[in-house]
Design a protein around this nucleic acid. Structure first.
Lengths: 264, 264
DNA sequence: CGTTAGGTTGACGACGATCAATGACGGTGG
DNA sequence: CCACCGTCATTGATCGTCGTCAACCTAACG
């Protein structure tokens, strides 16, 4: 494991529960569906579903009836090939919604990376509830937009980036998302509940290759991996290593990462 | 070009314009947004935007205001890296909607592959119109679900399939989509307005590699590429070559492809 | 005709996969 | 407490797929 601890701190609640006039701009305060859940009257709260690391929320091919909001923990979506190889498609972090726009049978499975807690809604009640909270409709669109942007970046990574760039890019993405969610205490140090095999399966690489890339990034002073805890020493460098797309370079990354160089 | 002709036949209208009680099942009759457009009273029709092959609807990084429905032609979404490499993220076929859930700035550009015609709507009026046509809300969700499934397959392809498998998989995907849209006259022969470089950029390969894969698939009797027109000789074989995901094998593919073996 | 864009084929090299051995760590049971 | 085991990380050696470079071909077009 890159990280020993498989727990993810439950975050602090927002100061004011829901910003009703959230700006449409993509990079305003983050609304996520944990707020949605917090807002609901008791009776409306979704049924809970807890998962231990390694357990599945549903399997590829399962008929899925529900929309799930990940309240706490990390999970991932994956797809298996007939020949047994696995591809991790996306990581789900607290606030992410899964099972939203599938047809009948999910083309992927969901597996917990840490202990997870999901809220489950029938499609119907989910949309009813969203309809009742106008800000949540907006949040939903924003979330889908971010998920799609990530999917696109993922395709680009696998298609056009070297192994080292892919690793750097994934780490950068995760750091960025965690920051958005206020899940990183310290800017530089964070727990990723990932094994080499998860990173490898996400990036279309072999475990050994990921290991070598991490080692070389460490040798080059970009990060430290000690006692199974990842410290990013130099975010700017990491971004350089990631060979970002033209869009990525500009706003979102910059907005989330105050340019912070060597000087501690 | 794999295909000489860059025109795409405009399809026949549905016999009955909109099936209001479309089954929720993913594989019922295909509703697409060309119907939506056809249904609108004159005054509501979106403004038209025509594109010639190679022209862009918008560029990566552009602020996009509109939702676009592709009425006719082929286009593709792409992303450029800082070092100049390009990745094609997705192909858009008639009936596809683009620009739907972006935040402010598109993380990708759109370029026409054939002469294209788009209908443009402001976000607001698009959602109003969709709200007025209940079946279209359903169609929208189905379309998004299919697009997401494709994105996932794309990630899996790039991550875990060999060059040959990727090429077979892409061809299969395109054949399947064209059939769904009634855009293939003959089962076995079809025009793909693609150059090697498009396939290569979509699959994260070099032009030469794509060329070699196509040649070898031809040698092996899976397809024919004569006078720049692609004929698929053996869909079943093609599906075998594609190393499908566990889900893909079953329904959607099978439903669209009547099992058709060697015997002509 | 010459020019150009794109397709095809071969030779070669590099990046990353695979195979294998070893190390580090945690858990379990004697 | 220590021996044993299983899981995962690490490192080295070798191999294969695919990218790169280069030459040539073909078709379209002025």
């Amino acid at each position: 494991m890159i990280s020993t601890s498989s727990h993810v701190s439950s975050r602090k609640p927002l100061s004011h529960p829901i910003a009703l006039n959230a700006p449409l701009a993509g990079y305003g305060p983050v609304l996520d569906f944990r707020d949605f859940e917090a807002q609901l009257p008791e009776a409306r709260a979704g049924q809970r579903r807890g998962l231990k690391p390694g357990e599945s929320l549903f399997l590829q091919e399962d008929r899925i009836e529900c929309v799930y909001v990940l309240l706490d923990g990390w999970a991932f979506r994956y797809q298996d090939l007939k020949d047994g190889r696995r591809q991790i498609v996306d990581f789900a972090l607290p606030g992410d919604v899964v099972g939203l726009n599938e047809a009948m049978n999910a083309p992927y499975g969901i597996e917990a990376l840490t202990p997870c807690s999901f809220a489950c809604y029938s499609r119907k009640s989910f949309f009813q509830l969203v309809g009742r909270q106008p800000a949540m409709g907006l949040a939903l669109v924003q979330m889908l937009a971010r998920a799609e942007a990530r999917a696109i970046e993922h395709v680009t990574s696998l298609g056009r980036r070297t192994a080292r760039e892919r690793v750097a890019h994934l780490l950068l993405e995760l750091v960025t998302r965690l920051k958005r969610l206020d899940l990183v205490a310290d800017t530089k140090s964070l727990d990723l509940p990932l094994m080499l095999s998860h990173v490898a399966d996400a990036l279309g690489l072999a475990n050994e290759t990921v290991c070598r890339c991490l080692s070389s990034l460490r040798r080059d002073g970009v990060l430290v991996l000690r006692e199974r805890r990842l410290k990013v020493l130099d975010l700017r460098r990491l971004a350089d290593e990631a060979n970002l797309s033209e869009t990525e370079g500009s706003e979102p990354v910059a907005a989330v990462m105050p340019a912070r160089r060597y000087a501690a």
